[in-house]
């Protein structure tokens, strides 16, 4: 049994960018390889997945051009790219990051229904069974994805973490700055307003400069991230 305390963070933003960039055959191979890898490292989990009743679950990230089909029942689970006309018994739609949260156990079964982050149609029991089964063991998706790089797994993982951290940090700082700006200047930039409080006036202009600079850096970072040949090794 593994300790379940630590929650590792999978770089969902980065992975999303990589999936955008990959051609479908590479993505198909990558998805299969990822599932096979999880199967090797979590044999009991795979046995549990294999014993679930048959289902074809369409996984549709709303912020990606691709959809996936998870086939359960009658042997090990299979993950493939879904054709536009693919038939399915249940579907799960949501942003890529929310789907990863579900896979890694950060979203629980009830939250699945309470929140609007995910939309579930069709065979509800199949999705609940899948969610509960995935929750039986801790899957570190980052390690699984990095393992696809073979001997380069460790550097790939480190690079991915570093890059994701930068992107994430930049995003977070922008949000904070926006909040600070809003607090200091509730009317917004364009709205005519009385002279700001003397204590906040210099802060305000510095905040605006910071915000613009950060937004520029983030755009550059995200461009770089999209150009990286992440996942090609599959």
């Amino acid at each position: 049994m593994e300790p379940g305390g630590e929650q590792r963070s999978f770089p969902a933003g980065l992975a999303r960018a990589a999936i955008w960039a990959l051609p479908p055959p590479a993505l198909q191979a990558g998805a299969s390889a990822l599932l096979r890898g999880i199967g090797r490292r979590h044999p009991r989990l795979f046995r549990d997945l294999a014993s679930l009743p048959p289902a074809r679950i369409l996984i549709a990230p709303t912020d990606l051009p691709h959809r996936f089909l998870l086939t359960l029942g009658g042997g090990p689970p299979r993950l493939s790219l879904a054709a536009a006309t693919e038939s399915f018994t249940a579907s799960l739609k949501g942003r890529f990051a929310a789907l990863i949260d579900l896979l890694e156990g950060r979203l629980d079964g009830d939250t699945l229904f309470f929140s609007r982050a995910l939309t579930l149609t069709g065979d509800t029991a199949a999705v609940v069974g899948l969610r509960n089964t995935l929750d039986r063991e801790t899957i570190d998706l980052l390690s699984e994805a990095a393992a696809l790089f073979g001997p380069f797994a460790a550097p790939a993982r480190a690079a991915a973490r570093r890059l994701e951290r930068l992107v994430d940090l930049a995003h977070r700082r922008i949000v904070l700055l926006h909040a600070a700006l809003h607090a200091a200047d509730p009317q917004g930039r364009s709205a005519p307003h009385p002279t700001p409080h003397p204590a906040t006036a210099p802060d305000l202009s510095r905040l605006r400069t910071d915000l613009d600079r950060l937004a520029g850096r983030l755009a550059a970072l995200e461009g770089k991230e999209r150009r990286r040949p992440h996942g090609k090794a599959a």
Binding site: R106, L107, G109, D135
Partner: peptide, 11 residues
Amino acid sequence: EGRQRGRAYVA
């Protein structure tokens, strides 16, 4: 309460 709710909730 919450055996159906999973690791994240429990933690």
